[in-house]
């Protein structure tokens, strides 16, 4: 039998696998914008750089194949040329970093979640081998879902080398509104598919995207419900990510500045979130997964997703 269809022939990825090797603590650096996520990297870890460059962009398929070290800015520029975008947020980092952290954009309601946009991952395993999970097409249930497992795993199960992400058309019109006297819940209910509804405990921001005629209609609707003004974008986003249910986020309160993403459950707050309760069974499976994927704990030691 010949090689499998997804066999990897890109020499750049094989060079990266050799760099990672099969022994010794190792981590991969992207833009270091979320370097402390999940804990502090053990100092003995060798830090390598991920390969860079767009491998193949097929706008007509709405798929982008890109090496992990490529910056999100470069990705966005290539996508914008063809009127497209992705679920990844540009925080100055790399595609691999964004997928490894798994943090979605402030426009998650419109752009989708990062975890839903990763179609295929290629990574270097703890044994120094290149592994492919998922596949290159937009719909795929062929086997176990390694892309979901790797997204947000902080490089603890494998070091991302290349990713295929789903892209989406850039909406023709976009408006950010800042509204007073309009509760975030009411704003969310009043519009069909906002890209973001944000709330800082006082004002509500709504990001409307789509056909200009629809954006205008929903803008008009919101203006009858509260005092809304067009603004250039979202307000400043506090540093610490909290994970709550959408209902908890909508009822959030704090003495320090915060911003709640309505309908998502994300709150950006001024202080770190107290430790979340962990389901014991999920913890057990997580420990077993780590043990099976990286028995010697050489991948990103010190970090826990």
């Amino acid at each position: 039998m010949g090689a499998s269809v997804l066999a990897i022939d890109d020499p750049v990825l094989h060079e990266f696998a050799e760099l990672v090797g099969a022994e010794g603590a190792v981590s991969v650096a992207g833009g270091r914008t979320r370097w402390e996520a999940g804990g502090t990297l053990s100092p003995e870890a060798q830090v390598v750089e991920a390969p860079t460059g767009i491998v193949s962009y097929r706008p007509e398929e709405m798929t982008m194949q890109v090496r992990a070290g490529t910056t999100v800015a470069e990705l966005d520029a290539a996508l914008a040329e063809k009127g497209q975008r992705s679920a990844l947020a540009d925080r100055g980092g790399t595609v691999g970093g964004a997928v490894a952290v798994g943090e979605s954009s402030v426009d998650q309601l419109g752009r989708g979640a990062v975890r839903d946009s990763v179609l295929q991952v290629r990574y270097v395993s703890a044994e120094g081998k290149l592994v492919t999970g998922g596949g290159p097409v937009v719909k795929n249930v062929s086997g176990f879902n390694l892309p979901k497992l790797l997204t947000g795993s902080l490089g603890t199960l494998g070091l991302l080398a290349e990713i295929i992400i789903r892209t989406n058309p850039m909406p023709p019109a976009s408006v950010w509104l800042r509204c007073e006297g309009l509760s975030p819940a009411r704003a969310r209910d009043a519009v069909l598919t906002p890209s973001a509804v944000l709330w800082d405990g006082g004002a509500t921001w709504v990001h409307l995207e789509g056909h200009a005629v629809d954006v205008r209609a929903e803008q008009k609707q919101l203006m009858t419900l509260g005092s809304c003004q067009e603004v250039g974008g979202p307000p400043p986003i506090p540093a610490h990510r909290w994970t709550l249910s959408p209902a908890q986020a909508a009822a959030f309160s704090a003495s320090e500045p915060f911003l709640a993403s309505i309908g998502v459950g994300r709150v950006w707050a001024s202080a770190p979130q107290p430790a979340l309760p962990v389901d014991p069974v999920a913890e057990l499976i997580g420990q077993r997964t780590k043990q099976l994927f990286d028995p010697a704990s050489r991948l990103n030691p010190g970090r826990t997703p």
């Binding site: 199960l157 994970t243 994300r266 962990v278 999920a282 997703p305």
Partner: peptide, 27 residues
């Protein structure tokens, strides 16, 4: 689980803390 333990995967919120075991389970 096949071993008989009962647990919960995923949360109602944006699930980017911890491994996405929910996503691995579906399918």
């Amino acid at each position: 689980l096949p071993s008989g333990e009962v647990g919960t995967l995923g949360t109602l919120g944006p699930d980017d803390h911890g491994l996405d075991l929910r996503g691995a389970f579906v399918g």
